[in-house]
């Protein structure tokens, strides 16, 4: 398993190198977005409107941070469960999104989209929101301010620690549950 230091925007060349299990320290600009924001992005695409941030080479982080206490750019900011964005992810990958960041399993349709459009699914450690917050140096709302925690934010990250869960070659890091060993197989 390899270790990479990467910077956004992400290119096809970089994505093709990555394999499930690789450790990635990501720096640069990433965008937050979860349930409500994704729904609005789809509505904008349906209407032919331009999206509030450039998708080409971008990474979306599925997160709804806590409010920033005084003196900090952002509060606690760990990943939310990704499958709820499975409905939306393939369409965004087709338009140039190179990575999503979350936790938990993805659908077959998302895994196929990663292969079709050379993209990757990163896992961040769930429940480590205070720790991950330390790697975010700036945050500003770029769309849907009325959604509060669910607004789209542009984050500046430095060495944000990620694991490649699903790569663009069909690799999948998650352990398959051993039902036999548990006595129900």
């Amino acid at each position: 398993m390899a270790e990479y230091k990467l910077t956004t925007p992400l290119t096809d060349e970089v994505i093709e190198k990555l394999r499930a299990g690789d450790m990635v320290y990501l720096s640069g600009t990433i965008y937050t977005g979860r349930d409500a924001a994704h729904k609005r992005l789809m509505d904008m695409l349906d209407k032919g409107e331009p999206l509030p941030f450039p998708l080409q080479g971008a990474a979306i982080y599925y997160v709804g941070p806590t409010p920033p206490p005084p003196g900090r750019p952002i509060g606690s900011a760990g990943p939310t469960t990704s499958y709820r964005m499975d409905t939306y992810a393939p369409r965004l990958h087709a338009l140039g999104l190179k990575a999503s960041i979350g936790k938990g399993k993805r659908s077959e349709a998302v895994k196929q989209a990663l292969k079709d459009h050379k993209a990757v699914y990163f896992g961040a450690t769930g429940g480590a929101g205070a720790l991950l917050s330390q790697r975010i140096t700036a945050a500003k709302v770029v769309a849907f301010d009325d959604l509060g925690t669910e607004a789209i934010r542009e984050l500046t990250v430095v060495d944000f620690p990620l694991l490649v869960i699903n790569d663009c070659h069909g690799g999948d890091l998650y352990a398959k549950p051993d039902l036999k060993a548990a006595g129900i197989g």
Binding site: V63, T66, S76, A77, T80, G126, A128, G129, A130, S133
Partner: peptide, 8 residues
């Protein structure tokens, strides 16, 4: 003083 997790 940050919350342990963003999902409070």
């Amino acid at each position: 003083g940050l919350p342990l997790c963003q999902d409070t």
